[in-house]
Amino acid sequence: MARYTGPKGRINRRLQTAIYESAGALKALDKRGNQPPGMHTRFRRPSNYGQALMEKQKIKHYYGLGERQLRRYFDKATRQKGNTGANLLMLCEKRIDNVIRMVGLCKTRPQARQGVAHGHFLVNGAKMDRPSYQVRPGDVISIRPKGNLLRYYQTVRESGVEGEGIDWVSFDTEKLTATVQGAPSAEDISLPVDANTVVEFLSR
């Protein structure tokens, strides 16, 4: 799942949500979002199990998680105080690849994940190559001081890519740096998903 390379438009249509943000995937959802992928098919009312599975798939595809990674996040969320579903999604929101996408340094989360994995970004001045890194208050995310990287991400910004805006991270558009000022709350979760259904599913 973390390295899904298949047709992203099919996933958007299957889950009826803009999970993948590439132009083709969004176009597929816009034009044929009322039809599931495949020939001569139509949506059927899913069972409770099917609905829960669909909600889980939304989280996995949206944040680029594998099954084991999602299970680790779930185990961690259950040990935290508060609502387990909200805790699970907040752990996903704090991933560095998600933050980079949210501030507008990349067009999509897969692109942000690839950039981090290739060592394009620094956290507090040190190279970071783990897309799953959980950002913390005070962390400063910047681009490695290499001319080609700086030009590339500046071009991405100038191409009209905009961040979705998150109150707990400030972004300097001139220096292209993001500073984590706090932690996300339940209101900051960017994915429309029934997390409690996912919690029930993972608790079986």
Rank of each mutant, 00 (worst) to 15 (best):
Ser159Glu: 14
Arg113Gly: 01
Lys146Phe: 12
Asn48His: 06
Met90Tyr: 01
Phe171Val: 12
Ile166Gln: 13
Lys58Leu: 09
Arg204Trp: 10
Arg10Tyr: 03
Glu93His: 11
Met102Leu: 14
Gly64Met: 06
Ile96His: 01
Thr179Lys: 15
Ala183Gln: 13
Thr197Cys: 02
Val199Glu: 04
Leu191Pro: 01
His40Cys: 05
Asn34Thr: 11
Leu88Gln: 05
Ala126Ile: 13
Asn124Val: 06
Ser185Gln: 11
Glu158Met: 09
Ser203Thr: 12
Ala25Thr: 01
Arg113Met: 07
Tyr49Cys: 06
Val199Thr: 03
His40Ser: 08
Val140Pro: 01
Lys58Ser: 07
Lys107Gly: 14
Val116Lys: 01
Glu187Tyr: 07
Glu162Val: 12
Thr155Ala: 15
Ala18Cys: 03
Pro37Cys: 08
Asp188Trp: 02
Ile100Leu: 14
Tyr153Ile: 04
Gly85Gln: 08
Leu202Asn: 08
Val116Gly: 09
Thr41Met: 11
Ala86Ile: 06
Leu105Thr: 02
Ile100Lys: 00
Ser185Met: 07
Ser203Lys: 14
Met128Pro: 00
His118Glu: 05
Met90Lys: 15
Arg14His: 08
Asn34Lys: 11
Thr173Lys: 12
Ile100Ser: 01
Arg95Lys: 05
Leu176Tyr: 03
Ser142Ala: 15
Lys127Gln: 12
Leu105Arg: 08
Arg71Asp: 06
Asp75Asn: 13
Phe74Tyr: 15
Gly160Val: 13
Leu150Lys: 14
Thr177Gly: 01
Ser203Glu: 08
Thr78Gln: 12
Gln51Met: 10
Asp129His: 08
Arg10Met: 04
Arg13Cys: 10
Glu164Gly: 13
Glu187Ala: 15
Asp188Val: 11
Leu53His: 04
Glu174Asn: 09
